[in-house]
Amino acid sequence: MEIPKSWQKVCERILSSPGKVLILGRGSVGKTFFTTYLANEGYKKGLKTGVLDMDIGQSNIGPPTTMGIGILEREINSLYEVPPKEIYFTGAISPAYPFAQKNIFFGLKKLLSKDFNLDLFIVESISYLRDKDFMSMLLSLEMEIISPKYVVIIIKPSDISKNQSVDDYLSEKDTEEGGKIFTISGPEGIKAKTPNKRKRFRIESWLRYLKDGKKYLVDKSWDIWEGEITQLNVACGLMDKNDDYFACGILFGGDEDYYYLFAPQLAREIKKIVVGKREVEKEVVEFCKMAKTEEEKLKVFIAS
């Protein structure tokens, strides 16, 4: 994709005095494209560059149901190439549910409490226009705890006047805190993802995340569950002894004594398994069932 002139100008302004950047906009306007572009440019300038992806349904950094922070280790073609350093499991793929909204608020605070000593920190926010109250509360929280030096609002080409060029469109204003708010247009030709494309994205994201995983046996009698297990084939968040999420897995079957949990190879003991509320796609479950891997009993942290 050819980079619009307005994007180049905003990028130059940000990188001349880098800091925290909040990216806002409706769905399918180019937020992820701009985030990737800005992150690459920061990395090429030698800046320690991190990205927080808040899109729990179409997450690039971490699997679906999570928000994730990643730090660039090289130039990238897509955000999913950035390995997650920290994740927060929300248990949902949409902010449509009150529990998911609560988890997004709490997870944002938790993730931003981590200090990675970044030169450039880009937060790509989530868009959910069906609930204006949620979006208003989220924006207030983002402005308060992120305290961004820059806010970049990306609008659709159809939102600018006909006598203005999409390539050149750029407006800016100062914030009360001394920061800058830039408004730019997304490129023309971006099409909204269909439900089938969103589903395919989630499947591919899970398969990338689980490709080197293994099957763990989880004793049903262990007191490590948070959330009622009303169905199988659901995503789970795995917490360590510090109550930090460090991985996700799929709870997909079992026998009289054990559940089966398919997850990346786990380097930490588990203190708690938080059970999600939505079945994952059948293709993901089938992958977990068919994967050729040895079974291993889960290692659990027992407080002394």
Rank of each mutant, 00 (worst) to 15 (best):
M1H: 14
P4L: 14
K5V: 06
W7Y: 06
Q8M: 14
E12H: 14
E12M: 11
I14Y: 14
L15T: 08
L15G: 08
S16Y: 14
G19W: 06
K20M: 10
V21S: 12
L22A: 12
G25K: 09
G27C: 06
G30M: 12
F33L: 15
T36W: 11
Y37C: 10
L38A: 13
E41A: 14
G42E: 01
K45P: 05
G46C: 01
G50C: 06
V51L: 04
V51N: 03
L52W: 01
M54V: 00
D55L: 06
G57R: 04
S59W: 03
N60S: 13
P63R: 04
T66E: 05
T66Q: 09
G68Q: 03
G70C: 04
G70A: 06
E75Y: 11
Y80F: 15
E81H: 12
E81C: 10
V82Y: 07
A96N: 07
A96E: 09
N103S: 08
N103W: 00
N103Y: 02
I104L: 07
F106P: 00
K109L: 05
S113R: 07
N117W: 02
L120M: 10
L120A: 12
F121M: 01
V123H: 03
E124L: 01
Y128L: 05
L129Y: 08
K132T: 14
S136A: 15
L141V: 00
M143P: 00
E144M: 11
Y150D: 10
I154N: 11
P157R: 05
P157A: 04
I160S: 08
K162F: 09
K162H: 08
Q164F: 15
D167C: 10
Y169V: 09
E172N: 11
D174I: 06
T175P: 13
T175G: 14
G179E: 13
F182E: 04
T183Q: 10
T183P: 05
I184S: 13
P187D: 04
G189H: 12
K191R: 13
N196G: 02
R198V: 01
W206K: 02
R208T: 07
Y209Q: 10
K211Y: 14
D212C: 03
K214P: 00
Y216S: 08
L217K: 13
V218D: 00
V218G: 00
V218Y: 04
S221I: 15
S221M: 12
W222H: 06
D223W: 05
I224N: 11
E228Q: 08
E228F: 05
T230S: 15
Q231I: 05
N233Y: 13
L238Y: 03
D240H: 11
D240P: 02
K241L: 14
D243F: 09
D244K: 13
F246P: 00
F246V: 03
F246S: 00
A247L: 12
F252H: 12
G253K: 03
D255P: 02
D255C: 03
E256N: 05
D257K: 11
L266C: 08
R268L: 15
I270Y: 00
V274A: 06
V275P: 01
K277G: 10
E279L: 08
K282Q: 10
V284C: 09
V285P: 04
F287D: 10
C288T: 08
C288G: 10
K289Q: 15
M290W: 08
T293I: 12
E294V: 08
E295T: 12
E296F: 09
V300Y: 01
F301C: 07
I302T: 14
S304G: 15
